[in-house]
């Protein structure tokens, strides 16, 4: 991470973002019900939810930081630590296991040098395991960011990675 980027992630939430969160809370009726949406909005901007931002969101939703954190940490898709530019979600559930997900994971490790839970040194990819993506008829399956991929095979997997810089 460059210093400028680091600073941005540790600066207070910008006014526009705060307004968006306030609007979510308004729309939800009960403020706390906007929690996941608000955390995801922050994550969309910064890649993850830092302690500082978590506290700010909690204040906007009239929750304690601990309360909001107990929600944030429960979910697989709210990241409380920095991630790479692209997040690979590789399905490790049973239909994909049958269809070769273990080999896909091994190939990702070979190409990128990372195990599930790790980020490449250049910050390009974070690899995370994910439960069944509901794409089992095209197993093995994965997502990169918001894009879904299935019927993975050795050549296809390499080609997909090429598309993410």
């Amino acid at each position: 991470m460059s210093t400028a980027e680091q600073d941005r992630k540790e600066a207070p939430l910008e006014a526009g973002l705060r307004q968006e969160i306030a609007a979510l809370a308004q729309h939800a009726g009960h403020k706390r019900a906007a929690g996941t949406d608000a955390l995801k909005l922050v994550q969309k901007h910064f890649g993850y939810v830092s302690d500082r931002h978590l506290s700010e969101v909690a204040a906007l939703l009239e929750m304690t930081p601990a309360e909001l954190d107990s929600v944030a940490t429960f979910y697989n898709l709210i990241f409380r630590r920095p991630v790479g530019r692209h997040v690979i979600l590789l399905c490790d559930s049973v239909a994909c296991w049958v269809m070769g997900a273990t080999a896909a994971r091994a190939q990702l490790h070979e190409r990128l040098g990372i195990h599930p839970g790790e980020t490449t040194a250049d910050g390009r990819f974070t690899l995370l395991p994910i439960v069944c993506l509901g794409h089992c008829d095209h197993a093995p399956a994965m997502m990169i960011d918001e894009n879904q991929y299935g019927d993975l095979d050795p050549a296809g997997l390499d080609a997909i990675l090429e598309g993410y810089k």
Partner: peptide, 8 residues
Amino acid sequence: DEMEPCSF
């Protein structure tokens, strides 16, 4: 929510 393994 459809997260039951092998359900799509």
